[in-house]
């Protein structure tokens, strides 16, 4: 009996709790990706690099003596501006062609290559890690969890709810959904479609930047960090249904738990192929994912 309790306390409990924190991190990444895809039909291959840029901005600001909590507010604003500019300057150029899926995918892929090398040029190859603003760990039901991760789970949850409210409960969100549903109809009803596109892209990029700041104290900051979450985030977006916020949340939680728990039974290196295998399976059998697209119910 004690053995079972002990394995629950030491093995399964922490696994679930840690998986939850990782799940929130992945969902934060996936949200921006899925919103951009849902509205613009753009697969943003440089999403990971925007995440990295957010983290680097935080490192720079903290280095200048700016309070970490202030960074949480400043960086997303800066990132939104960068995202807006990127959409207007680059995405728009190939947006109206028939092959916009492929062209925007290639374009953002090129952007990712440049960004990664630019980080190296600007910050050097060595990693940085901002000191965690909340130290210490708490024991909940015998499970040790660092306080910062508890904060991450809470903050991440709040952000997810806020994003959902913005998209589904505000006029702004209604415009976005209208533009996603039928661009021409929305335009004829007076929705400034072009600006809504750029604004949505900016919103997605700001979310990536915000995740960068939030996760920097846990995962450290280095030039190739954009690759870290991006595969998992793509998987979450596909399994959840491209463009679906609800789907991303469910898929994010389920897949990270699968990864977390499976690493107890199989060699951890196989948990990645396992999750990608699930993605391929979904693409084969149910390409629309768990839930429908943004603006499509």
């Amino acid at each position: 009996m004690t053995e079972i309790l002990e394995s629950l306390q030491f093995v399964y409990g922490p696994q679930v709790a840690n998986g939850l924190a990782i799940g929130v991190a992945v969902i934060l990444m996936a949200l921006g990706l899925t919103i951009i895809f849902g509205l613009l039909d753009v697969i943003n291959m440089s999403h990971g690099e925007f995440y990295a840029l957010g983290a680097y901005l935080a490192v720079t600001l903290v280095g200048q003596g700016v309070n970490f909590w202030l960074c949480l507010a400043l960086v997303p604003v800066a990132m939104a501006a960068i995202g807006y500019f990127t959409e207007r300057a680059l995405i728009q150029r190939v947006f109206h062609t028939k092959d916009r899926h492929i062209l925007t995918l290639l374009l953002t892929f090129g952007l990712a290559i440049i960004a990664e090398d630019a980080f190296k040029l600007a910050y050097g190859p060595n990693p940085y890690k901002p000191e965690s603003p909340i130290s210490g760990a708490s024991e909940i039901l015998g499970i040790m969890l660092p306080n910062y991760r508890l904060f991450l789970i809470a903050a991440g949850g709040a952000i997810i709810v806020a994003v959902w409210l913005v998209v589904y409960r505000t006029t702004l969100g209604a415009m976005v959904r209208a533009a996603a549903w039928d661009k021409n109809m929305a335009a004829s009803l007076g929705v400034p479609v072009e600006r809504v596109y750029a604004g949505t892209f900016a919103f997605g990029v700001a979310l990536a930047g915000l995740s960068g700041v939030l996760l920097a104290p846990i995962y450290s900051v280095f030039p190739t960090m954009g690759k870290d979450f991006i595969l998992m985030a793509f998987t979450v977006v596909i399994v959840g249904g491209m463009g679906s916020i609800k789907g991303a949340v469910i898929a994010g939680l389920v897949l990270t738990q699968i990864q977390s728990i499976s690493s107890l039974f199989i060699s951890p290196v196989w948990s990645d192929p396992l999750v990608f295998g699930i993605m391929v399976l979904f693409l084969m059998v149910r390409p629309q994912g768990l839930a429908g697209r943004l603006g499509h119910g």
Partner: peptide
Amino acid sequence: IRARGVYFALITFGLAQVVFKAVYN
């Protein structure tokens, strides 16, 4: 074969990733 457009791009990408990791391991 079931996937079209971006889904085809992603499924081929996913397949390559699975095989890459499998060989790597």
